[in-house]
Write a protein that binds this DNA or RNA. Structure first.
Lengths: 355, 355
DNA sequence: CTGAAAGCGCTTACAG
DNA sequence: CTGAAAGCGCTTACAG
């Protein structure tokens, strides 16, 4: 005999009463409750997860699907660890567990998600790496399972999402650069299918437009999250007959390669060429000159995700009546010295360096 | 009516037969099985996870507990993503799911683990960030749940673990440095409670001993996984009256700060000072001079962990009879130019630079 | 306040 | 090869 039945036998009462005592139901004699709790403690009892989930029709856990990349590629993992912490901060208050579900690099992300959803393994889902057209959204909608996405898609239907405020960061960045006289502003955008690449790109294009600067596709560089890519970007920028004088980087680690290569070509970042990064990831916090970038609270992002999710789960919804369902987490400018300069005659600097 | 009962009704057969057909039991008419499968497909049926787990006494999922660090600190997350991929490679063959369980930074890791274990939420556990004395090991042992640790502890009892082969990497590194004439070799060791710090440190001390070099506690620097710490380390090394001429880094990102600070002090890495890193993390693959370090297959590490775990789960054990239960995953030397030099007169270089 | 009983959605001996 | 039935360990109306 095990589980609740063992407790019941030990105490000489029914399993129903034990269950009620354990679950804090109001209609239980305080003395009985005390004895049950004490015995449970002594016997190291904990309710069997599967049995509880089956009886309650609720697992009390939420899934957070992320996608593993090929080992050779690299990762935005640090990002997620911070977000997980924020999510759990909220979930813990309700005794909910977070299960991180890492989709293997060689598996289809739709099929992977489907398994967990159709088997009712979680009460809600958080999705990351959202694509512009993302079938997973319809999957979750038709399954009727509460969910929230970290990132926006182009799906017309309504669903909850939390995203970074790329728009405001890009606007601020472009304003700063234009203010210093830059007109030839390059941008790096992420490789891959995630939609935030387009969001970032479009914000860039729109903000140039706002300042009457023509959009030039030659100044847009697709990058991966690797620092050495910064070197290639620099070479390509400098090979442009009318080279840019500033660059806005979606992946801040790229800056390491950008700095290095600029210097190798005789151009000093922050003095001869302006660089602005998107997120102040720890890896680049210590660059010299310090890089102008934007702080995002990963914890707050996680909290918002969890709140938007719980707002959709009946049992918890009443706590989150006014949680944001669709919102962009603010980004805070962290001014550095990497964009202190106005446009320099890059071509001339290059020529001098070569000679 | 839902689930398997719905299928049974639809087909006009019993739920028992449906279940047997679905689970590939041999004693089912092939035609019946075909009809069941077809109907299940059509109705988008998938077995309810909780019900299945309850009936089978097995969840078909394994947990991988990691620990979230404070947002300010940083992370070895890229490391884990690679490992997850390897683990799933093995689990997928048996239809097992991987649930990553991230212990929040503000929660006790013992209590966190206990919740999942006592509730029978997983069939097996993989533990990371093992401490020298780690109560979680006894917890899992007394709970009788199969587990394997990524890292060793000092617990005397027998249990399965897979670890990196720090010993062989350190031996190779020290050999290389000694071969080039270095006798004053510094080392950075990780901050924190994880046991691999001691393993790394002891390997360092032992290998010095092997070459008849006295161990000097002043040459041991505790570091976090942050690049700027490299700068501090350089300053401290150079402040030593008898400064080291080489350094072995546990956290390879530290190299970024080390390189930078060495140069700022007039010392060229790889020419005037030897640097060897432990793991060839992507972030540092592009340093100049290229850093000598060691490659570890994260995928293989994950595979080994999964195999060592499944070897302990009755249902799967027969596939993994000769899986290693306690082993160190090999490290491969990736020779670079960062340790090409012999010992340089660091003091003199410094003096010259200052003047 | 407590007990008896049904039920959650599956699996699995046991008959036939 | 298939059905009927018990059981996995809980929760929860329903009586009393």
């Amino acid at each position: 005999m095990r589980g609740i039945a063992r407790l019941a036998k030990e105490l000489g009462i029914s399993t129903g009463t034990v269950s009620r005592a354990l679950n804090g139901k109001p209609d239980v004699n305080e003395d009985t409750r005390r004895r049950v709790l004490e015995t449970a403690q002594r016997l190291g009892y904990a309710p069997n997860h599967a049995a509880r989930a089956l009886a309650q029709g609720m697992t009390r856990s939420v899934g957070f699907m992320i996608e593993l990349e090929q080992e050779s590629a690299t990762s935005s993992d640090y990002f997620f660890m911070g977000v997980f912490d924020g999510v759990q901060h909220v979930l813990a208050e309700h005794g909910l567990d977070l299960l991180v579900l890492p989709c293997p690099s060689n598996q289809d992300h739709y099929t992977y998600l489907e398994r967990f959803v159709t088997r009712s393994a979680v009460d809600g889902m958080i999705l990351a790496a959202i694509r512009k057209v993302d079938r997973r959204i319809e999957l979750l909608q038709s399954a009727g399972i509460p969910f929230v996405t970290l990132g926006r898609s182009h799906t017309s239907s309504e669903y909850s999402w939390i995203d970074l405020d790329f728009e405001s960061a890009v606007a601020t960045a472009v304003d700063r650069l234009v203010e210093r006289g830059h007109r030839r502003i390059a941008v790096t955008v992420p490789h891959g299918e995630a939609n935030f690449g387009d969001v970032f790109h479009d914000a860039y294009a729109n903000n140039l437009g706002r300042h009457g600067i023509a959009y030039d596709p030659d100044l847009v560089y697709v990058t991966r999250r690797q620092e050495d890519i910064g070197e290639t970007v620099v070479d390509e920028m400098l090979a442009n007959p009318d080279p840019p004088t500033a660059v806005l980087l979606i992946y801040e680690v790229t800056a390491i390669g950008v700095y290095r290569r600029l210097r190798a070509r005789g151009i000093e970042p922050g003095r001869d060429f302006a660089v602005v990064g998107f997120r102040d990831e720890p890896t680049v916090r210590f660059l010299t000159p310090s890089m102008t970038c934007f702080h995002v609270s990963l914890h707050d992002l996680g909290v918002s995700l969890a709140q938007a999710l719980l707002a959709q789960i009946p049992t918890f919804a009443h706590h989150y009546r006014d949680a944001a369902r669709r919102t962009r987490v603010p980004t805070t400018l962290m001014p550095g010295d990497s964009d202190a300069c106005g446009p320099a005659p890059v071509g001339r600097l290059l020529a001098r360096h070569k000679s």
